[in-house]
């Protein structure tokens, strides 16, 4: 069994330093603009920050993967090319891409820099992945969170590139790169602007009894009673009233986080090359706890011991965790 790469989130330079210190093999990050799928206010890196951070990460033996994984709208592709050119100049180890135009630009102009296919490309069949490998020399695919471990193993035998899977964080069951729910309500696109549920349009309203209503634009996403755990104010995690159901129900998915700690040995045996922790929008406290826990678990497995991962429930959305489709497609 090969030692998998632990790929960790970095939303700020401080989070990146924390991840490096906690034992990340690779960190992924983005610039402060629409070229990446976590274009949140106050998050991400300026060019000078990334320059320093790449140096720091490399000194610690950690690779830096630059997410350029949104889809440029017509006429605006220069911003994506500029992000790629800058990343190449700063010495990033790989680009994470979803758009075929961006992938083509990198493959032609920077053939020596690795290309990883983002989960935003939603490539989930051997045929689609082989196409990306053939056309753009993709070295690694980040798989959507919809496949079981046996399906991932079969995939590993059929495709000519490495596999990266999410192991912790957002459950992400929408068809990634194609979700238009935020766009429908706010006019901003998750896929082109990099913004899912823009903070500027989120409202939290707490009543005198302690009940919390979360709204995106004019739409109520959920109403949590005072003793109920909360989730992110994203439409896909909303609880809605419809004539077809008695009471409010979760139309897409409930607030819950992925945690594959107990499936780690199976994933590693299935041929997964890299294990990804989601959460560039989270704090350095989250990065420290999750990366430390998974670093220890992976090292224990490699040494032939029990993973013994620490309890991460407090960091999960809604304080609930699942193995999702990785365990069984009947998860819900």
């Amino acid at each position: 069994m090969n030692r998998p790469e632990l790929v960790c989130p970095a939303g700020t330079p401080s989070a990146m330093r924390t991840a490096v210190e906690a034992g990340a093999d690779a960190v992924y990050c983005g610039f402060q603009n629409a070229t990446n799928a976590r274009n949140f206010p106050g998050l991400n890196f300026t060019v000078p920050e990334l320059e320093k951070s790449v140096r720091h990460a490399h000194n610690g033996g950690t690779k830096v993967l630059l997410a350029v994984n949104t889809f440029p709208p017509a006429g605006k592709v220069d911003l994506w090319k500029e992000a790629v050119d800058t990343g190449a100049k700063l010495g990033v180890d790989a680009f994470i891409v979803a758009d075929i135009g961006v992938a083509d630009y990198i493959a032609k102009n920077y053939p020596d820099i690795r290309l990883h296919l983002s989960v935003q490309a939603a490539a989930s069949t051997p045929e689609a992945i082989k196409f990306y490998c053939r056309e753009f020399n993709i070295k690694r695919v980040v798989l959507p969170r919809i496949l079981t471990v046996p399906e991932i193993k079969t995939m590993a035998d059929e495709i000519p590139c490495e596999i990266e899977t999410f192991i912790f964080g957002n459950h992400g069951l929408m068809v990634e790169g194609r979700c238009s729910l935020t766009n429908y309500i706010t006019g901003l696109s998750t896929n082109m602007d990099g913004v899912c549920s823009p903070a500027a349009q989120i409202q939290y309203i707490k009543d005198d009894s302690g009940n919390l209503t979360t709204k995106l634009g004019e739409f109520t996403i959920d109403c949590f009673s005072c003793d109920e755990n909360a989730g992110y104010p994203t439409i896909c995690k909303g609880r809605y009233l419809t004539p077809a159901h008695d009471g409010a129900y979760y139309a897409f998915e409930e607030p819950i986080s992925l945690n594959l700690s107990t499936l780690l040995p199976d994933l590693m045996a299935a041929g997964v090359t890299a294990l990804k922790i989601e959460g560039r929008q989270r704090s350095r406290a989250y990065v420290k706890s999750v990366v430390t826990a998974y670093r220890k678990a992976v090292d224990n497995i490699m040494a032939g011991h029990n993973p013994e991962i620490s309890d991460l429930l407090a960091l999960t959305e809604g304080q609930k965790e699942t193995q999702g489709a990785f365990k069984s497609k009947a998860w819900r």
């Binding site: 909360a230 406290a285 407090a314 304080q319």
Partner: peptide, 10 residues
């Protein structure tokens, strides 16, 4: 502490 986790826990 993580702010999102505090928010989830209310």
């Amino acid at each position: 502490l993580d702010g999102d986790a505090l928010f989830f826990a209310r």
